[in-house]
Amino acid sequence: MKAYAFDYVRAATLVEALSLLERAGEGGKLIAGGQSLVPALNLRLLAPQILIDIAQLPELRGITSDDTHIHLGAGTRHAELATSALVGQHVPLLQTAIRHVAHAAIRNRGTLGGNLAHADPASELPACMIALEATMLVVGPKGERRIDAIDFFKGLYETALEADDILVRISIARSPAETRVHFNELARRAGDYAMAGLAMVMHGTQPQGLRIRPVFFGIGDRPTLASHAARCLEQAADPMAGLAAAQQALSQDLSPQEDLQADADTRMQLARVLLKRGLTDLLAQGRG
């Protein structure tokens, strides 16, 4: 199980990486942590002509914060996110989620940007990005643009990134103290991709005026904001009273897929259970 032969170049700057990528054309492929790419290479599922290594680009590094947002360099490794005090303080959902991402050795190399760009439908972080309403800063030959997370994930391993784009930075509004977050996934073994998972954020404290963002992953071909279900919860006199309707509404929100791990019906059942448990957890946090 050895990869096809390919060439390799390590970019020193973002500008250089963009020009290498443009020059390489269709045969070019970016590599950062490589934790999803290298298995695909070893299995000969991909045959790039040249890999352009962006793991060490200074423009992709660093976790910073301003008054309103926290900014995560796309090259930030999972392990760095997991231990960053800034992340812990302002986007605790991410640190909860990262504990479920594969295993320590993978988290040490895998990058946030690589994870998002790979867009595995069972991956944890894309769902968190939608729940947190993150914005992706993308740089391409025509310059910079910003893409909302909800518009970023287009399908199975598909994103809004063009072949010559590089994901540079992810910005997330700092969560106010009263914002509650919940993360849960159902995987048969620790570290496996989930059969079904839920990242959920609840803004507000009064039963009226709550804003709830339940985002499911591992169910369909992409992470999915369950907006119908959210509306049922938000519009009920008390969210728990809206749960049954919300669970029903999930069939409008989700298109569960069958794979080796579970059939579609199982996934829908798991989604409903996750919603109930998630809501219960969020409401309990308020009482805590």
């Binding site: 019906d265 199982t266 829908m268 059942q269």
Partner: peptide
């Protein structure tokens, strides 16, 4: 004994 198998047996399906 997969989760699907058990949910099936219990008749608990998301449908």
């Amino acid at each position: 004994l997969t989760p699907s198998l058990i949910l099936n047996a219990l008749g608990r399906r998301g449908g």
